[in-house]
Nucleic acid binder design. Structure first.
Lengths: 242, 242
DNA sequence: CGACACCTTGAAGAGGTTCAAGAAATGTGG
DNA sequence: CCACATTTCTTGAACCTCTTCAAGGTGTCG
């Protein structure tokens, strides 16, 4: 078990504005500090939770990078998302009291464990938290709508372009570069998420390199022409620069 | 405007067990009756809400059949779901206070309008409602995971089979036949939902008919071999009967 | 340094799309 | 209530995108 008990508090966490409501009174902040039971470290390659596990808590990612994936008995496999610092995982477990997907750390990670009964309890008292929880769930629904659009109507190049833009945008919101990123996942995992085979992902990267849109060195990727990617996603004629 | 003001109550609604928590005390039930502000009729082909509309309420479908769809400026279009009696729509609007998809009635419909601020208010007092709202949102997230699996990893026949089974299962839960159904949507709308072209949907139906798995007469559909559909979805060798 | 996982690239093939034409159903107005 | 316009559905043929299969290269970790 990769569990550690450390007394922690949201009130002095530098990620608070990413995963918690802002503008709280001191009084409410104090209550919020009862939210996180413990922190838990998750080694790269190990699971935070598994399909079938009893649902008890939501997890706020402090550091590291996760994927969530469905694996069916008949061998189908689908990555349903990639999650990074400040994002919440575990929402799938609420409806049936057990998880319906796996959450796997793609690099050494640490999460804040938030027992869900405690979330519900504090939500009843702190309106801002109640609203926040609703927004987090709604955001996930909207995100998945976007993935459905991608999977249902985009060609391979468009999917990869949308994927890269989304990733770099989220990283930028966390203070990283707008143009450089390190892919924490394999081509196969990208492919699974995008409904493509790993070879197609690889070929698409190569094509983007040929066209001068990105530089790729293994998992290190630099975007040279954001606008070109944007145009692909927006179904528009190419544009020399942006 | 297709709006009508009728004083209504959940406590004597025959759909209550579909859209509301069960096993409430009389006291809680009374509070719940403040949830639905009005009912609203939506004519076939008209929108309950549009992308960009201010978000105010969730809607519980009383009668009729809806689709939700994304339409992007560049002409992409994606049906994100089909909804029937007892199901809740509008969850996409919570996160940004405006809707991010269209909800369109595929047949004359009636919905219960539940102002979201009222939902949040009553949720703070009636724990069962709080839990219920969380479960509804989580259920939607899990449903979308399933759609991602479908769009990301299934072939056309498998998608259509999964679609039919899902539809008939939900209808059956509402007291309709396990084998007969009327499709309220066009082939194009089915295709959009499944990430296929309408011709592919039509061809797949024809193939199922040839194989004796279903009967199709326009939008009237009868499933003759549920097991065959199940086997397709489960990636298994065909089975003569079930 | 060797084993293993991951990535790239090529060639052939399959599944789904596109384009096109016609049939069937539905709705509308006279 | 019927004729006509419109929408929806089916089917065929050619095409294209992505997949499959295969081989070799690169990077990483014990």
């Amino acid at each position: 078990m990769n569990k550690q008990s450390i007394k922690v508090a949201c009130s002095n966490c530098n990620l608070r504005e990413l995963c918690m409501p802002v503008g709280l009174s001191d009084h409410d902040l104090t209550k919020l500090d009862e939210l996180v039971a413990t922190r838990r470290k998750v080694k790269r390659g190990t699971n935070l939770f598994n399909n079938g596990d009893k649902f008890t808590s939501l997890y706020a990612i402090r550091t590291g990078f996760f994927k969530t994936a469905l694996a069916t008995e008949d061998g189908r496999d689908q990555v349903t998302g990639f999650q990074m610092a400040g994002e919440i995982i575990g929402l799938d477990g609420i409806v049936n009291d057990h998880h319906t997907c796996d959450a796997i750390a793609l690099e050494d990670a640490e999460v804040c464990v938030m027992p869900f009964d405690r979330i519900e309890e504090i939500s009843r008292e702190v309106t801002a938290l109640q609203t926040h929880v609703h927004k987090i769930m709604s955001r996930e629904i909207v995100r998945e709508h976007g993935v459905m659009l991608l999977l249902g109507s985009m060609r391979a190049e468009e999917r990869v372009a949308a994927f890269l833009l989304n990733l770099v945008q989220r990283l930028h919101a966390r203070g990283f570069s707008q143009s450089e990123l390190v892919l924490r996942m394999t081509r196969e995992e990208i492919g699974s998420y995008l409904g493509l085979k790993l070879e197609t992902v690889s070929r698409t990267f190569s094509k983007f390199v040929e066209e001068g849109i990105v530089e790729v060195k293994q998992r290190h990727l630099r975007i040279l022409n954001t606008q070109a990617l944007q145009n692909l996603v927006n179904n528009q004629a190419s544009c020399s620069n942006g």
